[in-house]
């Protein structure tokens, strides 16, 4: 399959991830949506790395995976901490960012 397919799949998955991030209230699901978006981008990079006969895309994807792993771990720790203090998991009820 050609590059249009790669573009289509990654654009769709990315948009779905973005949608999930916006409409869901559970922070865990929001994180999963972020993972979706990252994966979509990874797929794009890998696909184009194959079309362009270059490994740079794959290396980029590798580093994105590292970042995603770190981000997930820290994010989940933060969620855990919030849960320990508030005993609920709804981002709409967390508004200490308000100025």
């Amino acid at each position: 399959m050609g590059s249009e397919f790669v573009l289509f799949v990654s654009a769709t998955v990315f948009s779905i991830g973005a949608l999930g991030f916006v409409i869901r209230k559970n922070p865990l699901v929001m994180f999963m949506s972020v993972e979706l978006m990252l994966n979509a981008v990874n797929f794009l990079l890998v696909g184009y790395s194959s079309f362009l006969n270059s490994l740079d895309g794959q290396i980029f994807a590798l580093i994105i995976m590292t970042v995603a792993a770190a981000e997930v771990v820290v994010g989940l720790a933060i969620i855990l901490t919030i849960f320990r203090t508030r005993h609920e998991l709804d981002v709409d009820h967390i508004n200490i960012l308000k100025g």
């Binding site: 590059s3 249009e4 573009l7 289509f8 654009a11 769709t12 948009s15 079309f51 006969n53 270059s54």
Partner: peptide, 21 residues
């Protein structure tokens, strides 16, 4: 956003280039 992203498909197939690897 989805529509805008799909617009990237309008450029058409990527021609394989003679890369390093």
């Amino acid at each position: 956003l989805f529509c805008e992203l799909l617009m990237s498909m309008m450029v058409g197939e990527t021609k394989p280039v003679e890369g390093r690897v």
